[in-house]
């Protein structure tokens, strides 16, 4: 029975992901400290969240994050990828360099930015201050902490999109591009009317994934600010993590996880539709 070959994958996946995920959904309706018996509390966890200003800050931050990441890295990636088509001979060199931040561990990227760039003591910010330029460490201001983190994640992330868009652009049929050029289209007209429509499926997929990933963002927030100062850079995932492991309010954490998943779910449905169509070929 060779069909049983799927069993190892399936068992591991169900034990590690599916069962705990179902338990999370159930736990959202319980009060639990992780050790003693859970107590059923109905919708109390969600009611507490509704009245919790930190929850609303975190949710807003996730939405802001999504908007930033739908615009900035996708634009940067598309811009660089189309330009790499022109700079064909050096394209591979640029591609490899742009991809470097993707392969560096988030913990390391976070610390390098924190210590070498943002820090007023050891970083570029401090150096500029000594030259009399008025810059502050964005991570320590409530108004800018989230954006300070977003910049780090952007630096880490955009190269991935660039490489993906470049791979897609190379598959646009060259006859289409030549036809456009013969008819006198300029470089930017070619981009606008031939190249962008040509890779639209890839752009759509990356936008869906951006929405999903934006609600999962954890590493850089946890590493750089732990959600601070004064919860100003808190996102749902760090809020859930803190609730579960610092406050031992596992039920509340589960409720937050359910909220994250609901946002992800909408995007996931679209994602599966798009992917499944491709899967059928």
């Amino acid at each position: 029975m060779h069909r049983l070959y799927v069993l190892p994958t399936l068992i591991i996946n169900i034990v590690i992901i599916a069962i705990p995920a179902l338990m999370t959904v159930m736990l959202a309706f319980f009060e639990w400290d992780g050790i003693s018996d859970p107590i059923f509390v109905g919708l109390d966890n969600f009611r507490t969240l509704w009245d919790d200003s930190v929850f609303w800050t975190a949710l807003t931050n996730n939405v802001v994050w999504t908007i930033i990441f739908l615009i900035v890295p996708i634009t940067m990636g598309l811009l660089a990828a189309t330009m790499m088509l022109v700079a064909r001979r050096s394209a591979n060199f640029f591609q490899v360099i742009y991809f470097l931040p993707v392969i560096i561990a988030t913990a390391i990227t976070g610390r390098v930015w924190q210590g070498m760039i943002y820090s007023p003591v050891t970083g570029i910010t401090g150096l500029l201050q000594r030259y009399g330029i008025d810059v502050a460490n964005p991570l320590t201001e409530t108004s800018s902490a989230l954006y300070g983190i977003a910049v780090v994640d952007l630096w880490h992330w955009w190269g991935f999109l660039c490489v993906i868009f470049f791979a897609a652009l190379r598959q646009v049929p060259s006859e289409q591009i030549e036809a456009a050029r013969v008819e006198g289209a300029t470089f930017f007209q070619t981009i606008r009317y031939v190249l962008l429509p040509g890779i639209m499926p890839t752009i759509t997929l990356m936008m869906i994934m951006t929405v999903i990933w934006s609600f999962l963002v954890f590493d850089f927030v946890y590493i750089l600010t732990q959600g601070g100062p004064a919860y100003s850079s808190e996102v749902l995932s760090t809020f859930a993590y803190r609730s579960a492991f610092y406050d031992l309010a596992v039920g509340k954490a589960a409720a937050i996880s359910v909220v994250i998943s609901l946002f992800g779910l909408a995007a996931t449905v679209v994602y599966i539709r798009v992917q499944a169509r491709e899967f059928d070929q």
Binding site: P20, T24, F218, A240, G264, I272
Partner: peptide
């Protein structure tokens, strides 16, 4: 496919 997009937080706490 669905499990690739499941947030880690959805299974992290009961798993831990």
């Amino acid at each position: 496919l669905a499990s690739t997009t499941a947030p880690i937080q959805l299974f992290l706490f009961p798993l831990y």
